[in-house]
């Protein structure tokens, strides 16, 4: 394989895939819309429904109030998960790491449960997202401060602290659920499956600009990450402020994951699978790996959501179930592949 080179075709291919899956998410669903109607309403943002032709009103409502926010949520969450996965893998120098090692899922679960029980979830559509986001960031911060030592953070301690904090928080969540009402239990379980249903502009719009900024920022600062992935001693000798860069990228990766959780609930495997697959295709240079992971993650989640919505239409599968169903076998394939050929 010729690494580092030849990423342009993948860039074009993935961009195309993103546009097509995005368009597909607007066209297909419980009701399929004609393509020309979709185009027609798509370029009339913010129009008052009374001013829309009667024949286009259904399409207008479906595209602008249901499918577009949902597609943007899928795109944003997928891109965020892909990039944060790539960052965590680079930071931990392990192609099989994922943001979950930082205890982020467990933290967001706790946040979600508290929002459901505390009534925040029913008070505001953003309630459960915001609380899950805060829970994720909180867990990440606790894990980091536990593993911090005077001479810096050791990656092994980060992983161990992540495991410990995860099991502690998961225990808390289970404990809370045992004593909670049935409706809260089912709402929580529904949330943990990860889904984009009910994505509304109120819920989708706030996280998107942050995701965009963090993506651009991390792509700009990809070279320190490249150097850091050579090992800390080498990175230090080449002029990387190791602790500073590590801390910044940990914050960026956990915030991206938390934002993704806020958009789509916990979505399994995207953060692991997408960057790993892209690294196999175009090499480990984060300068290309990060943008391609954003494109790949976005397209993949759009695609998974499209399948989830249409395969049993008019019923819907949860998107998280679908990514797990695709991700599990992919992971097994990776293990078998590596067992045969050795790790690269």
């Amino acid at each position: 394989m010729n690494q580092g080179k030849g990423y342009e075709p993948w860039f074009i291919g993935l961009s195309l895939a993103l546009v097509l899956t995005f368009l597909g998410s607007l066209v297909w669903g419980a009701v399929s819309l004609p393509l020309n109607q979709v185009f027609e309403v798509f370029f009339r943002p913010g129009a008052r429904i009374e001013n829309v032709e009667r024949s286009l009103r259904q399409a207008y409502t479906i595209v602008w109030h249901i499918r577009l926010p949902r597609a943007l949520a899928a795109l944003g969450a997928g891109a965020a998960l892909g990039v944060s996965g790539a960052i965590i893998q680079g930071l931990f120098r392990n192609p099989l790491a994922s943001p979950d090692v930082l205890g982020i899922s467990a933290g967001s679960s706790l946040g979600a449960v508290l929002a459901i029980l505390g009534g925040l979830a029913s008070m505001h559509p953003l309630g459960i997202s915001l609380s899950a986001f805060l829970g994720a960031v909180f867990a990440g911060a606790v894990v980091y401060s536990i593993s911090r030592r005077p001479e810096g953070t050791h990656l092994l301690y980060l992983i161990l602290a992540g495991l410990a904090v995860s099991s502690l928080l998961n225990g808390l969540v289970s404990g809370i659920l045992v004593i909670s009402e049935e409706y809260a239990l089912s709402q929580f379980i529904f949330w943990t499956m990860g889904g984009l249903d009910g994505a509304s502009w109120v819920r989708v719009l706030p996280p998107l600009p942050f995701i965009g900024l963090l993506l651009i920022g991390s792509i700009l600062f990809a070279q320190p990450l490249n150097v850091l992935s050579q090992g800390e001693e080498q990175a230090f000798s080449l002029g990387v402020g190791v602790e500073k860069v590590k801390l910044i990228f940990l914050i960026v990766a956990s915030t991206l994951t938390a934002l993704a959780v806020a958009l789509a609930g916990p979505i399994a495997f995207v953060g692991l699978m997408v960057p790993h697959g892209i690294r196999l295709l175009t090499g480990p240079n984060h300068r290309t790996l990060l943008p391609l992971s954003a494109l790949g993650g976005g397209s993949f989640l759009l695609f998974a959501d499209l399948i989830a919505r249409t395969i049993l239409a008019p019923r819907e599968l949860k998107t998280g179930i679908l990514t797990a169903l695709i991700g599990g076998p992919y992971f097994i394939f990776l293990i078998l592949h590596h067992r045969r050929e050795g790790l690269q």
């Binding site: 090992g231 090499g283 480990p284």
Partner: peptide
């Protein structure tokens, strides 16, 4: 500095590794 540990994890090309000298 050229250290003793050479445990690398990602398949960077030789050229990319050497370019990192100008970081």
């Amino acid at each position: 500095y050229l250290g003793q540990s050479r445990v690398l994890h990602f398949p960077f090309t030789l050229q990319e590794i050497v370019e990192m000298g100008s970081y």
